[in-house]
Nucleic acid binder design. Structure first.
Lengths: 336, 336
DNA sequence: CTGAAAGCGCTAACAG
DNA sequence: CTGTTAGCGCTTTCAG
């Protein structure tokens, strides 16, 4: 691989000249410029980005660390982040931790080794040992989707308790007393908050909380499937199920379809996250919709604010409100 | 940010010592080792990955460049790539070009600036001007999903013509003579091959090809939606539609649902790509399934082979066979 | 076992 | 307008 030195020697100029021609539009005489450019083309020279960012301390890139690339919630957030990054002429790289703290640690290590200028992260787990590795004195970052109690940094989250509360409340208002809940990961604030919303809704209506009605789904479709199977084989089966994320919603739907349980007649159903197919599913799915794209843009804007920060800015925590999109799967539009 | 120099000074040793302690398990006496480690912890020192890879010329990372993060086909491929990368103790970063040649150029530039050791790419467009930028003498890479005629490098692709051929053939075998086709991007080999499969199937059965039945959907869900609207408002409406990728399938389904056209009674339907919800959709969707995960692992293995290459290896092109998964949306299981 | 020094490829003063 | 030189933060000979 040709270096700037090779180009300089071949063109009979100094490396400084080559560098400047490359970095400043109208630096040298068009003659030397042309000469240099020709050599660059001939030698197939490509500036080493690594060396470049070593000297100026900037990379022009940010990272978005997510726990599940296959989850459309996160890829939708990614689009938001990308759009603001592009606005600032930055590139964004995605890192998938696969909900695995070990993989997360790996990525954090490299990222904090300054291969990027800052990052946005939805943590795989808010276990303290993990979090200690993430250090804002090393590299600016902002939390997204999953808040961490012990990490006082900027965060863009949604009111998960409220989202779950609205959903379960709606079910109760429609006459359901036995509402199954498919819980997400307990080691995330998001998972815990949604469970809290479920409990609060029951409590507020004076409905007793049967522990059997809460099944863990770990935020995965396989987990949602198993949880649903458990729910429907209960001696006293629930009349409604609320799945607390999109992957688990898919698993739930699969289990219900297999068991030939009709929605909403035999089982009312609400999912979390509005995806591309929910509105033409049969029946159209009632869901708690999160402002995904907006979360991405907000997180991006805050990060870039930090990156260009001269004075100290107070920590920002933005809590977005989710919205209950009522369609047909919850039976609200049906006689019952 | 503390550097290795700070650590050295603070610990009263040389930078070389610090470096060696960090990189070789049993280098110094446990005494100096402990002393240094303490300073590292106290100073919150984090080795600069950029500087490190400048000297040893390796980054321990590869990139996967895809045209659409929101497309599950690509995220599934990503999981395959990640699994083999992890096996080799590499990290993988994802870059989303959003089907935009300009963004792709941007990423390619930075990537070829050696911020990673190699990459896997599904090109946004096989326009020649774009491809000239991608240069295997700069950095090893392998093509995935979308082949490029003028780029003679390793490639993992699927037999797209065959996939489309099987689907359309099946429709014809079930009595359909007017088969609508939602075409993908014409500037990708994948898009062109699927169209060819459609045409070949018609030709082989002696069915005339009505140009109105071919509508472009650009591989997007919005495109699929519009294409379907055009198809169903044709004076002589098709009796079946084949959407040639998953995003367009979603758009098609949305348009059909809106128009209250029953599947498969009023319209037989086949999609491309098997996603998580296809088998419990109502009716379950007949699709052409691609071996996504396998594509990822194969691409990864070939790339790592190249990275550790000592002798010249011949170019590899692996063509995987897609599979027609017959469910109910094509009407094959119904009386008609 | 430890340190001095060279150098990875590039940019940024500073001179000329 | 162009060249010389000094680093960026790290690893790696090569001596001691």
């Amino acid at each position: 691989m040709a270096t700037i030195k090779d180009v300089a020697k071949e063109a009979g100029v100094s490396v400084a000249t080559v560098s400047k021609i490359l970095n400043y539009a109208d630096y040298s005489t068009t003659q030397t410029r042309e000469k240099v450019m020709n050599v660059i083309k001939r030698l197939n020279y490509q500036p080493n980005h690594i060396a470049r960012s070593m000297v100026n301390g900037k990379t022009g890139m940010i990272a978005l660390v997510i726990p599940d690339v296959r989850n459309s919630f996160f890829t939708e957030v990614a689009r938001g982040v990308e759009d603001v990054a592009n606005k600032y002429d930055f590139r964004v790289i995605l890192c998938n931790t696969d909900e695995d703290p070990a993989k997360q640690k790996n990525y954090i290590d490299v990222l904090q080794g300054r291969i990027i200028d800052g990052f946005i992260i939805a943590v795989a787990s808010d276990d303290d040992r993990q979090l200690k590795k993430i250090d804002r004195t090393k590299l600016p970052f902002v939390l997204i989707d999953r808040q961490c109690q012990n990490l006082l940094v900027d965060a863009i989250i949604v009111d998960n308790r409220d989202g779950a509360f609205k959903a379960v409340n709606h079910l109760i208002a429609n006459g359901h007393r036995r509402v199954g809940f498919i819980a997400g990961k307990r080691d995330t604030q998001t998972g815990r908050d949604r469970l809290r919303g479920y409990r609060d809704a029951l409590a507020e209506s004076g409905v007793a909380c049967d522990l059997n009605l809460v099944q863990d789904g770990e935020f995965t479709s396989a987990g949602g499937y198993l949880a649903t199977k458990a729910l429907i084989s209960l001696p006293e089966r629930p009349t409604a199920i609320f799945a607390s994320n999109n992957a688990m919603t898919i698993g739930m739907l699969k289990a219900l379809t297999e068991a030939k349980i009709r929605i909403p007649e035999e089982m009312a159903v609400i999912g979390f996250d509005d995806t591309d197919w929910t509105d033409f599913f049969t029946p159209p799915l009632t869901v708690v919709r999160q402002p995904t794209y907006t979360m991405g843009t907000l997180a991006g804007e805050i990060l870039f604010q930090r990156l260009s920060e001269t004075v100290f800015l107070e920590r920002k925590e933005i809590v977005l409100k989710p919205e209950l999109v009522i369609r047909e799967s919850c039976g609200a539009n049906h006689d019952r």
